[in-house]
Each structure stands twice: as C-alpha cells, then as structure tokens.
C-alpha cells in the first residue's frame, strides 16, 4: 500500500496509513473516510481531488484533530508526523487539545480554509490574530510579534501592512482576506501547509493570484503542501502529486502529469472530460451520470461501480479492487488493470 517505501530518497514528512473516519448520526454510522493511505514529502505538494462528500476535508481535519465530537477515528489508523529533528509523533495517539498537539497545530502544520470571510473572528483585528499565533509558537515579545505580523502581511502582498494590521477582516476584500489568512499561517513557520479549497470561494482572477502567491511562498519557506480541491484544473497548476478521492477512498494516485495526461481510473477520466478546455472548444462536456450514493448506502465492491460506464458486473459490484501499480509513481484501484 505504501508508496513512500518506493521513494526512499525523498524525505517523508507525513505518513497516513489506513485512515478510517466515521460519524455517529441519528440515521446510523456514516463511514466518511474508508481506509486511505498517503504520504507527503518535504517541500512537495500533494493535491487531493474529489467531489464534495468524498472525505477529502475530513481526512485533513483528522490530521489536525479538528474533527467534531461525533467523529470516530478507527483504532488501526495511523497518522505519523516526522519532525525536522528526526523525532516521529503518532498523531492519533495524542490528546486532542493537549500540549503536544497544540505544538503541531499551527507551529508545524498550518491550515487555511475555504471561507476566508469566516476564518477570522469578526471582533478581533487581523493583527491580533497573527500576534496570538506568533506568540503561541515563537519565543518573541509582543512588539516583535507585531513586527513579524506586519512583515508577513507585506510578504503576502497586502499593501500598507502597518495600517492593515489594525483592521478587521470585514474591512478587507475576499482575496485580501485569504492573503491575510496565509500570513497568519505562515507567521508560525509550519513545515506543512494544509490548504482546504483555499481558492474556491474567490473570483477566477483572484484565484490565480492566490495560487501564484502560494507557489512562490512554498518555495521561499520550503514548505510541503496538501492542497485540497474539487477542481482538477487548479491541481495541475500547483501539485507535484495527486490523489483522486471518491466516497472516502483513494481511487488513483500519481504525479500531476500522469493524472492529467494518462488518467487510468474511469472516474478520473470522466472528471477530466468534464473540464472545459481551450483545445476542445465547441465540443460538449460530458458529465458523470448518476448521483453520488448516500454515505449511508455505500455500494459494495468498488465505490464507483454504480456510475462507472466500464463496470464489470459480477466483479466491480462484489469485490474490492486492490492497489495496482501502473508505473513507479502511479497506482490505481480498478479491476480494469488487475
């Protein structure tokens, strides 16, 4: 299962093994993430693509231990964090709000969210929230923290940062807010940044600017990034590696080039067919037929078989496809390749 072993020359930062997350609800137990494994290498960007409800946000929230109380992480799941000094920490074993977890949150793994509007408290200044973050993770005075805050705002391209630092989030535009959010996160100097659909709620032009900024800062700070999106087009611009998720499972994994140029899984293929492209102008886009099954009625066998045009009856709906390598870096879960 583990691709990381084949890439030993890369320095592994985060390893997720067989992560299973379920939610207790009135209607029963919903399995949101069903045994996914992936790893993130230092300085690399992993893109996770999937429709809403595919479990991509839940898996990253599990890494940060930000899941609601109704969520249960399976006992056999493992999330291993490798510190820069060689220490390894098993995140699933940590106490939720404990000291060790708080050290990781922000200081080692930063997170930015989809809605820059509501990621900031409406009654505290942006500077207040950056300074709070800096003071929580760095041994600096308040004055120094404020200087770091102004400096970070400047770095993320906010003009007039010494004024902006005392403003409230509602005084900034959507794009500026997301820049400020990035500034908050980077001010704590994390080695991994989780970006949960950071550009989804922004205009397309702003989206491009933010992506550009993230790419630039990633290099400058030498961070690894987990970039979550439902947009394969965005993934192509930022990710080194891509994992395609559907109904809580990773169906296909590979480098960004492989996924975009040689998609193997029928699901990835149909996702790509649904993207408008300049070289295919005038042609109809194909949507994937059917609906995502309700998480309460997970189909047996391959989760995608209910909507798959190439499904092999008697196989896909009864057995679970195993991991099949396509290349050194490319794997797929599909009976078409077994």
């Amino acid at each position: 299962m583990d691709i990381g072993t084949e890439q030993i020359d890369w320095d592994t930062l985060l390893e997720v093994q067989d992560l299973k997350v379920s939610f207790k609800t009135d209607e029963g137990i919903i399995l949101a993430v069903n045994g996914i494994s992936f790893s993130v290498q230092r300085g690399q960007t992993l893109g996770i693509v999937g429709e809403s409800g595919s479990g991509k946000s839940v898996s990253t929230k599990a890494i940060m231990q930000l899941l609601p109380r109704t969520a249960v992480v399976d006992k056999n799941s493992s999330i291993t964090w490798h510190r820069e000094n060689g220490e390894t920490v098993e995140i699933t074993q940590l106490k939720k709000g404990g000291r060790e977890m708080r050290r990781i949150r922000g200081g080692e793994i930063g997170m930015i969210f989809q809605e820059p509007m509501s990621s900031f408290s409406p009654v505290h200044t942006i500077g207040n929230q950056i300074i709070e973050a800096v003071l929580a993770h760095r041994q600096v005075s308040k004055q120094e923290a404020r200087e770091i805050a102004i400096d970070m705002l400047d770095k993320v391209g906010i003009s007039n940062p010494s004024v902006r630092v005392d403003q409230y989030s509602f005084e900034l535009s959507g794009g500026m807010r997301q820049r400020a959010m990035i500034a908050v996160t980077l001010s704590m100097n994390p080695s991994l940044l989780i970006a949960d659909e950071p550009t989804t709620s922004l205009d397309v032009t702003i989206q491009a600017q933010i992506l550009e900024l993230m790419n630039q800062l990633r290099e400058e700070f030498n961070m690894a990034v987990i970039f979550i999106t439902h947009n394969l087009g965005v993934i192509a611009q930022v990710a080194d590696e891509v994992a395609v998720m559907y109904l809580g499972q990773i169906l296909e994994r590979g480098t960004a080039k492989e996924i975009i140029n040689q998609p193997q899984h029928p699901y990835t293929q149909s996702l790509l067919k649904a993207i408008p492209r300049l070289d295919h102008l005038g042609k109809r886009l194909t949507a994937i037929g059917g609906d995502i099954p309700s998480p309460l009625e997970r189909p047996g066998g391959c989760p995608f078989h209910t909507r798959c045009e190439q499904a092999i009856s008697g196989v896909c709906d009864t057995q679970i496809p195993t991991l099949t390598p396509i290349s050194n870096t490319h794997t797929v879960h599909c009976f078409l390749y077994e």
Partner: peptide, 12 residues
C-alpha cells in the same frame, strides 16, 4: 461533512 442529506422522517 457531518450534515447528511438523508431525510429525517425516512426511518418511519
């Protein structure tokens, strides 16, 4: 994610 689209009155 916790929200589900399943009808509440469904079980009945």
């Amino acid at each position: 994610m916790t929200a589900t689209t399943i009808p509440k009155g469904k079980r009945t």
